[in-house]
């Protein structure tokens, strides 16, 4: 599949076709991840489009996206595989009267039909083409899981004691995302290419609004972007990302807004900033912010 991608420009074209607005750096990172078949570790603030990269990639390559959402306590049975216990027990009951030996029975119930493939195994066993495997918010999983992941990511192979090793038929393209809740281990980082996505520039954000919310009026889009740019400069507990910008744009369109006014902003502020402290903060700074957004 990566055969179709021969240069960074190809990746840019792919992204553009899927309405993902990325800069040259993002395109280069994706290109290298595809060509070198290395996992791509994407870090950045919440809501800057990390997860979106994997989704776009899957859509652009026309392949399946397999997603593993990480959380604390995530373990092998939810990430890789699990035996279908209920089905196994039923089968044992059914076989009670049969003349099979214990060894045969064991081989029977520890076989493919009783295996529940979880995302990692699904990605490795994908039959038709290389899927995109998204390991989302890897920083939320604990260190033990990271260590386990290393084996999978370096060899693209896992071992199930009852069945033996399973190696990937088509190497999946792996995208890992992290919010930097904790520092990832060096060993994991070493196997990955690293991409840091920052908050977008004004031009990039505007392009994103155009691509994602084409119904937004030109003047309003500019105002939104300038407002967000100014908003990210003041000190907030949680600075809004692109996701918030798009939500806000959508909200303003629903309200048939054509221009930012203090009333409109006040009534929709909860879409953009999401803590009491921040809301108070923004309301205090509103005249200045608005001036920057509307002038020009």
């Amino acid at each position: 599949m990566s055969g179709a991608v021969r240069s960074v420009e190809d990746v840019e074209a792919l992204l553009a076709r899927s309405h993902y607005v990325g800069d040259r750096e993002i395109a280069t990172a994706i290109f290298l991840a595809l060509r070198l078949h290395r996992p791509l570790l994407v870090e950045g603030h919440a809501g800057v489009g990390k997860t979106e990269i994997a989704k776009t990639l899957a859509a652009a390559l026309d392949t399946e996206l397999i997603r593993l959402q990480c959380y604390e306590g995530l373990d092998v049975s939810t990430a890789l595989y699990e035996w279908n216990y209920a089905k196994q027990i039923l089968r044992i009951r059914m076989e009670e009267q049969s003349s099979q030996s214990a060894v045969e029975k064991e081989a029977l119930i520890f076989s493919e039909p009783y295996l529940l493939a979880r995302p990692l195994l699904q990605a490795l066993r994908h039959a038709s083409a290389s899927p995109v495997l998204l390991i989302d918010e890897i920083d939320r999983a604990d260190e033990e899981f990271e260590a386990f992941l290393l084996e999978v990511l370096s060899e693209y192979q896992v071992t199930i004691p009852e069945l033996g090793s399973i190696s990937a038929k088509h190497l999946p393209y792996v995208v890992l995302t992290s919010n930097r809740i904790r520092e990832l281990s060096d060993a994991l980082k070493r196997r990955c290419l690293y991409l840091w996505i920052d908050y977008p520039s004004f031009e990039k954000e505007l392009a994103i609004i155009h691509a994602r919310l084409p119904e937004t009026e030109e003047s309003l889009a500019g105002q939104i972007c300038r407002f967000m740019e100014a908003l990210r400069e003041i000190e907030l507990d949680k600075r809004p990302g692109i996701a918030e910008t798009l939500d806000w744009g959508r909200a303003l369109c629903e309200l048939n807004g054509t221009s930012l006014t203090p009333e409109v902003i006040r009534s929709t502020l909860g879409v953009v900033v999401k803590s009491k402290r921040d809301i108070e903060h923004v309301q205090g700074a509103l005249p200045g912010l608005l001036q920057r957004a509307v002038i020009e």
Binding site: V8, E25, T28, F31, L193, Y194, W196, D198
Partner: peptide, 27 residues
């Protein structure tokens, strides 16, 4: 070196981006 083999290193921006992606680990 693996990364540079894949890109057109006469493109300065790509060259830098490739180094960034391959080398950096922390923002």
């Amino acid at each position: 070196m693996c990364a540079l083999a894949e890109i057109d290193i006469t493109q300065q921006q790509d060259f830098r981006n490739a180094l960034l992606v391959a080398l950096l680990q922390r923002p």
